[in-house]
């Protein structure tokens, strides 16, 4: 199961890298979304996917899944959610101000280079 997850996460990272190297800003943002999905799934996988009951006491189960990675993912999800929201608004604002969503055209300082 871990091997399958590793392959899927690898594909997510690959897609994210490809999208982040493109010119359109929205594709880049979609790429960051996929990147964070990959990272979150990786935490889950790395914590171990051995079978066990959901980490809620009272189920009277023999063993439980590891609760720590789930807490880490929850934290990482809200953080990346906040950052993505900010990034989307920034992209919207810069589309209004700069009149382009092509990152090739967002170069240089006022004078030159």
């Amino acid at each position: 199961m871990e091997i399958l997850m590793a392959i899927v996460i690898g594909i997510l990272f690959m897609t994210a890298t490809y999208l982040m190297l493109s010119k359109s800003l929205l594709r880049i943002i979609v790429g960051t979304g996929l990147l964070s999905h990959g990272a979150h799934l990786l935490i889950l996988t790395m914590g171990g996917l051995k079978r066990g009951s959901a980490p809620i006491l009272g189920g009277n189960a023999e063993n439980y899944t590891d609760p720590l990675p789930q807490a880490l993912i929850l934290t990482a999800i809200v953080i990346s959610f906040g950052v993505t929201a900010f990034f989307l608004v920034l992209a919207y604002r810069s589309y209004q101000e700069l009149g382009t969503d092509n990152v090739e055209e967002m170069r240089g300082t006022e004078q030159n280079d």
């Binding site: 982040m20 800003l25 900010f86 990034f87 920034l90 604002r93 101000e97 700069l98 967002m106």
Partner: peptide
């Protein structure tokens, strides 16, 4: 600032 923020953020 908008231009450079995008790069820094990414």
């Amino acid at each position: 600032q908008l231009r450079e923020s995008i790069k820094y953020l990414l």
